[in-house]
């Protein structure tokens, strides 16, 4: 079994998180791994049922997502989360939970300017939010804190969904989350590693 990892999409509503995540999911499945997709909207109908959009409720919702992802990571199962997850601190807490459980967190920031999102307005939500019909709408009447050091930034106003997805997939290979077919996981068995460590120690390289 490979290492557990979480591809954590973050970005405003309509910025392409779900669309890109579908391509990433396909690639993970293609490599023979299973993958759990935790879509923010879906999770809100189950373990986050009843939570609203105040900062407190949003933090609780994201924290639950992070905890779930950390449990999957612990057992080596890849996870994709696609939720706005607007607050930096809570995303960083989720990173700590996931890495402490032995997983790798790959934060993907779907960056898109508001004008483009309003024009796109796939779900018609921006129109309603601007009209004041939806309260606490991230990017319009609620803040969004962009990540400082995401593993990948997808510029979804300029890139195609396929281009953005490729960037994420490349990063997963680069970080060793995914392995190309025929590529060994490690150059050494446990025994060989011990022997090499001993050799390097004798040479003063450890």
């Amino acid at each position: 079994m490979g290492k557990g990892f979480t591809v954590w999409f973050t970005g405003l509503s309509g910025s392409g998180k779900t669309a890109i995540s579908k391509f990433v999911e396909k690639e993970i499945l293609k490599q023979g791994r299973e993958v759990e997709v935790l879509d923010g909207d879906v999770v809100r109908t189950h373990i986050s049922k009843g939570l609203g959009f105040s900062k407190e409720d949003r933090d609780a919702h994201i924290s639950r997502l992070g905890w779930l992802a950390s449990r999957f990571s612990h057992y080596g199962v890849p996870v994709i989360t696609a939720a706005i997850s607007p607050y930096k601190d809570i995303r960083n807490n989720c990173r700590q939970m996931i890495t402490s459980a032995g997983g790798i967190m790959v934060e993907v920031y779907c960056e898109c300017d508001l004008d483009t999102l309003v024009k796109r307005d796939v779900k018609g939500l921006y129109k309603k939010a601007i009209a004041g019909e939806i309260k606490n709408f991230t990017g319009v009447s609620d803040p969004y804190e962009a990540p400082d050091n995401p593993e990948v930034v997808c510029y979804t106003a300029k890139e195609t969904v396929e281009e953005s997805a490729q960037k994420v997939i490349d990063k997963l290979y680069e970080l060793g989350c995914l392995k190309k077919k025929g590529e060994a996981d490690e150059p050494y068995s446990e025994e060989e590693k011990k022997e090499i460590d001993k050799r390097l120690e004798a040479l003063g390289y450890l």
């Binding site: 890495t99 032995g102 997983g103 790798i104 967190m105 590529e183 060994a184 150059p187 050494y188 590693k193 090499i196 460590d197 390097l200 040479l203 390289y205 450890l206």
Partner: peptide, 19 residues
């Protein structure tokens, strides 16, 4: 970058090879 290197997150040490 060396005979030994580190992965920062999760932290781990490894021996860089041709891989």
């Amino acid at each position: 970058f060396g005979f030994i290197d580190r992965k920062p997150n999760p932290f781990d040490m490894f021996i860089p090879t041709s891989m």
